[in-house]
């Protein structure tokens, strides 16, 4: 074990998680990253990717919901939607890190916010990198890419959480399931709130 290089710098960690997930989480379990550093140096930039790709795709091609021609949104609407997307993503990531930290009491996990922030960032990598598919904004194609990406992220969650947070496997599984519940509920809330606001008139107009 003496020959193993432990690299706790988060940057290379994020790339390594794609190829060596187990090792990456083990390294994280020994690290004490600063939450602010993680947020400003990495999370913010990853969160910027999906709205950026969506903006480019939306203005070049228009959003294709499948029926008839793609919908071209007015420029200002596209900008607002993209900015909202960014803020929603950031809120989701940060709130999940806090929720995870809140749960660590119950499951005997490490409490350092930085570690939870790093976990969330690692899990966000597949999604945010996968969002390159937004460059061609066809709803179905995006689903086709995002569903496996999400499943992969969930797998990373189950495998990585107990290791990174120093909990026993069984408790790690329980905590991961709680986080899955949190994320599912958060997503469906977003879906519902968006739809409710949209029908009340607050949202882009999608008439042809």
């Amino acid at each position: 074990m003496n020959g193993t290089r432990t690299n706790t710098d988060t940057g290379p960690l994020l790339l390594r998680v794609l190829f060596r997930p187990k090792e990456t989480f083990e390294d994280l379990s020994r690290a004490e990253p600063s939450p602010y550093r993680i947020f400003f140096k990495y999370l913010v930039w990853f969160a910027l990717l999906p709205p950026m790709f969506a903006y480019i795709g939306g203005s070049r091609y228009g959003w294709d919901l499948g029926a008839a021609n793609p919908l071209i949104l007015a420029e200002i609407q596209l900008r607002i939607v993209s900015m909202l997307y960014f803020f929603v993503l950031l809120t989701a990531f940060v709130s999940t890190a806090f929720a995870s930290q809140w749960m660590s009491e119950t499951y005997g996990a490490r409490k350092s916010l930085g570690v939870h922030m790093a976990m969330v960032t690692i899990l966000a990598v597949p999604m945010t990198v996968g969002s390159v598919v937004h460059l061609y904004p066809h709803v179905f194609i995006n689903l086709l890419v995002f569903i496996p990406v999400l499943i992969w992220a969930m797998y990373l969650l189950y495998v990585g959480l107990p290791v990174a947070l120093n909990i026993e496997p069984e408790k790690g599984m329980l905590m991961a399931s709680s986080l899955v519940g949190w994320l599912l509920v958060g997503f469906v809330t977003l879906l519902g709130v968006t739809v409710a606001l949209w029908t009340e008139g607050l949202g882009p107009s999608i008439g042809a």
Binding site: M173, S177, V180, G181, L184, V188, T189, G192, T199
Partner: peptide, 28 residues
């Protein structure tokens, strides 16, 4: 594992249900 995950989906379904019961969401 199965029972714990089922609880997460139970939470999802019992949250989504009331949400879809809101008239403006239901309209869609």
């Amino acid at each position: 594992k199965f029972i714990v995950l089922s609880l997460a989906f139970y939470g999802l379904a019992t949250f989504e249900g009331p949400m879809m019961a809101i008239k403006s969401v239901n309209a869609v």
